[in-house]
Amino acid sequence: MLRVFALLLLSLSFSLAQLRVVTTYPWIGDIFREVGRDRITLHVIAKPTEDFHFVVPRPTHIAKLRSADLLVINGASLEIGFLPPLLQQSNNPKVQPGRQGFLDLSQFVELIEKPERVSREMGDVHPEGNPHYFLDPHNIPSLASAIVERMCLLDSPNCTYYRSNFEDFQRRWKARLKEWDAGFLQLKGLKVVQYHKTYDYLFRRYGIETVGTLEPLPGIPPTPKHLERLKKEAENKGVKFIVLEAFRKGDRNSQNFANQLGIKVVVLPQDVGIENARDIFSLFDEILRRLSV
């Protein structure tokens, strides 16, 4: 019996000679799918249906982290509510912060909306700035490049394979980037109200104006008083859409607010794997398509 168990363990630990990757969010996983393809094993912690701030720290993720060679995170405190206890319980020194097996992608982009000072009276603000940086398609190539560099460091025999996949990815991305640039620039001057400042990187790049957020402060659900004030401002400025992340789909506050203004709620995918966003390419396609109606 004991021997069978030991054999099982051995087979489990040796059958996976591939680079074992854990990512916190699906979009990071999708970049890995592009560059690592069949030479890696991948586990993604958050589901696209989960609020990216409040992912459930299920113990099954601990089991995946235990054997991981590389953990790649969004960073900028987005994972602070669920990742630290998972990491602490993972008993895996390789993926602890500061080690080679830990990669924080927020280090490779310039974050916006960095507050001068932070206090919890300001709601759920991140001292590092707005963490939803990946929703600017221009940020993706440098993030993918950072990922490939780290993969090469950890798995040098497959480095040329990863690099050539990356070149291929980058070529396709740049081609699509031109289409997106052209498409989104059509939307310049569009005025929207967001639920949360999720799409600020995208909207800032293409001159889409966020008149306000339904949340009075980041992470604080809408209050009647705040909505009343926002309604006036939205009416004055001629807001066209309420933009809602897909994981909040069906939110009554946004629908009521939109009804009062006589405008539409546009549900946008906020990550890969939800609302027709099959991969990181179609994520931006879908956002563009839904905003362009």
Binding site: L9, L12, S13, P59, T60, I62, A63, R66, Q89, N91
Partner: peptide, 11 residues
């Protein structure tokens, strides 16, 4: 002392 087994599920 605790030991996390290298199983695909949490043990």
């Amino acid at each position: 002392i605790n030991w996390l087994a290298p199983t695909p599920f949490y043990l």
